[in-house]
Amino acid sequence: MPEGYALNWFAVILVAVVGLAAIGGMFLGNYLLAPKRPSAIKTSPYECGIEPAPFRWSQINVRYYVFAILFLIFDVEAVFLFPWAIIFLKSAPVVFYEMFIFVGILFFGVVYGWRKGVLQWK
């Protein structure tokens, strides 16, 4: 384990704890200071002044899934790209060229989607 590894985690967790405490304190302060007089009208969902329709959670446009899948592909790719970016100058030439083949294949995927009209938001 590298030097200071535990300390790294300690700093991250400490900020998380302090941050959560601060957020909790903010909510608690609001809870203690603010008036609480809820009414049926006040707690009804906001819809520009008209009577809210009986609607809670709608169906989701399928296009969001397409973009989510594209995002997943590239996000996983980024996980591979970052270690490569640090070492490609110190490694064999095959390391350098192979990444471009990999990225090229993924980019071909984007071009394919583009030609298929997946990226068009109608």
């Binding site: 900020v15 957020i23 609001n30 200071l33 809820p38 707690t43």
Partner: peptide
């Protein structure tokens, strides 16, 4: 801080309450 914190009656209460913290924590 002195403004009434209204929770809508239809809301998914736990998700509604935790959302601001879930947005603020990564920022910190």
């Amino acid at each position: 801080m002195t403004k009434e914190d209204i929770t809508p009656s239809w809301a998914d209460k736990r998700v509604f309450w935790l959302a601001p913290a879930a947005l603020l924590m990564p920022a910190l």
